[in-house]
Computed example of a mutant assay.
Amino acid sequence: MSTDTLAEPRTRGLQERLWEAVTGRDEQAAARLVLDAVDEGTDPEAVLLDVIAPVQARVGTEWAANRLSVAQEHAASAIAERVIAALALHPRARARATPRLGRVTVACVDQEWHALPARLLAEVLTLRGWQVDFLGAQVPTPHLIGHLHSFGADAVALSSSIPTRLPTAHAAITACQAVGVPVLVGGAAFGPDGRYARLLGADAWAPDARAAAARLADGIPVPVPAAGRQQIDDLPHLGDQEYTLVVRGRPGLVREVMSQLEDRFPAAASYTEQQREHTAQDIAHIVEYLSVALYTDDDDLFTGFMGWTAAILEARRVPAASLTPVLDVLGTELKDFPRTTRLLAGARSALEAGGPLLRSTG
């Protein structure tokens, strides 16, 4: 077997054993499994990307299907992070980690708490010979720019998993470019094809850590700073102010939907206090995704989120039909906003179409 890749049966076996360890909250077993694999000749990068990363993706899938609780998902993720830290200290990993290339700053955008994808990239880049500054989760843009001023970088790699962070990512991209540092972005927030990376003016996008490392190795041209560049320069549709007004009105919109929900969806009358709290949180997320769809002017972003939400609710035995009155109330409250009306109508039609949308987003 090559030391650079894992044979498929062995990969599946390691994945299953690691899955059992992280879902069984057995950190020692998880660490022992990973370190033994490296001792036996498996390349550390292959362990990171072919074993740990797929298991973590499975954790998210199982949570969405309501087969793992939030606490179980958090525990599994915490174990994965500590296992990665242990792997980074393995002699074979340290031997590969002598910096011989440039310097890269890896960070999650502000308010992005899903740090594991960025951590995986940081470790892969370190193994490949980059000097890496890993800043971790939710890095405020001023702090990121302060770091660049203090230590410099040949490139910044920004990670975001949640599309609602795209406006913040946009601000971070333009700020880094303004100080002459190119930005590579990655993570689910930017779309499976990188469409939002292009929309927000990132210098490069990569779908995964291997592709990101290859793109950095090829070199990303240093951007020419554009004096006074604003987000509206990239997204002229923001000039209609719909995004700003919906963001500012979000608390009131959530209250209005909650006040009308029982009349439009009678089952809500029997909700417990906890169920009402969760419902308010769900509505807030819907308005948040509506806002970012207005920011990007992308109907698919909002429609896809509503389909995913419907699938999540169904997995938790909450009828997806409860989403329709939410869209109806929002449509009434925001009837004077043309783009918003279009987004809400499209999502409502997709939900009414039913099966195919829910299956594709489950």
Results as ranks from 00 to 15, higher is better:
residue 77 S to V: 05
residue 44 P to K: 02
residue 65 A to T: 07
residue 73 E to L: 01
residue 77 S to Q: 05
residue 81 E to Q: 15
residue 81 E to K: 11
residue 83 V to L: 07
residue 85 A to S: 14
residue 80 A to Y: 01
residue 69 S to V: 10
residue 72 Q to A: 14
residue 84 I to S: 11
residue 43 D to K: 01
residue 53 A to Q: 13
residue 66 N to S: 12
residue 45 E to M: 03
residue 82 R to P: 04
residue 64 A to V: 07
residue 63 W to F: 14
residue 54 P to G: 07
residue 69 S to C: 10
residue 76 A to T: 00
residue 43 D to V: 01
residue 51 V to L: 11
residue 65 A to I: 02
residue 44 P to W: 03
residue 58 R to L: 15
residue 66 N to W: 06
residue 50 D to T: 04
residue 89 L to N: 08
residue 87 L to I: 03
residue 78 A to V: 13
residue 83 V to G: 05
residue 86 A to D: 14
residue 75 A to S: 13
residue 60 G to K: 06
residue 86 A to I: 03
residue 46 A to Q: 11
residue 77 S to M: 06
residue 51 V to M: 08
residue 59 V to C: 00
residue 69 S to W: 10
residue 58 R to S: 14
residue 56 Q to D: 07
residue 61 T to S: 12
residue 59 V to T: 02
residue 71 A to T: 15
residue 91 P to R: 12
residue 53 A to R: 12
residue 45 E to G: 12
residue 54 P to K: 04
residue 65 A to V: 06
residue 42 T to R: 11
residue 75 A to Y: 12
residue 92 R to G: 04
residue 85 A to P: 05
residue 56 Q to W: 02
residue 89 L to Y: 01
residue 75 A to V: 13
residue 90 H to D: 02
residue 81 E to M: 11
residue 66 N to P: 07
residue 83 V to I: 11
residue 54 P to F: 02
residue 91 P to C: 13
residue 69 S to T: 15
residue 86 A to H: 15
residue 52 I to K: 12
residue 84 I to L: 15
residue 79 I to A: 04
residue 65 A to E: 14
residue 52 I to M: 12
residue 82 R to A: 12
residue 64 A to R: 11
residue 42 T to P: 02
residue 92 R to I: 03
residue 45 E to W: 00
residue 75 A to N: 07
residue 50 D to F: 04
residue 63 W to L: 08
residue 50 D to Q: 15
residue 63 W to T: 07
residue 86 A to L: 15
residue 46 A to E: 11
residue 81 E to L: 14
residue 57 A to I: 04
residue 88 A to Q: 09
residue 48 L to P: 06
residue 41 G to T: 05
residue 51 V to P: 08
residue 61 T to K: 08
residue 61 T to P: 00
residue 63 W to C: 08
residue 79 I to T: 04
residue 51 V to Y: 10
residue 43 D to F: 06
residue 48 L to K: 05
residue 41 G to M: 06
residue 69 S to F: 11
residue 67 R to T: 12
residue 86 A to W: 13
residue 52 I to D: 12
residue 71 A to C: 10
residue 61 T to M: 08
residue 89 L to K: 09
residue 54 P to A: 09
residue 79 I to P: 00
residue 89 L to D: 13
residue 45 E to P: 00
residue 61 T to Y: 03
residue 58 R to T: 14
residue 46 A to L: 10
residue 59 V to L: 05
residue 56 Q to F: 00
residue 88 A to D: 13
residue 49 L to W: 03
residue 89 L to I: 00
residue 74 H to I: 09
residue 71 A to K: 10
residue 83 V to A: 04
residue 73 E to Y: 03
residue 83 V to P: 06
residue 59 V to S: 00
residue 75 A to H: 10
residue 90 H to R: 08
residue 62 E to G: 03
residue 43 D to I: 02
residue 89 L to W: 02
residue 42 T to F: 05
residue 76 A to M: 00
residue 57 A to M: 09
residue 84 I to W: 11
residue 42 T to H: 13
residue 76 A to V: 01
residue 58 R to H: 12
residue 55 V to K: 04
residue 83 V to E: 07
residue 47 V to P: 08
residue 70 V to E: 06
residue 73 E to K: 00
residue 67 R to K: 14
residue 90 H to V: 08
residue 77 S to L: 06
residue 67 R to G: 07
residue 91 P to S: 13
residue 81 E to I: 03
residue 90 H to K: 04
residue 68 L to R: 06
residue 69 S to H: 09
residue 67 R to F: 07
residue 77 S to H: 04
residue 59 V to P: 04
residue 56 Q to T: 03
residue 67 R to I: 05
residue 46 A to D: 08
residue 70 V to W: 08
residue 68 L to Y: 04
residue 41 G to S: 09
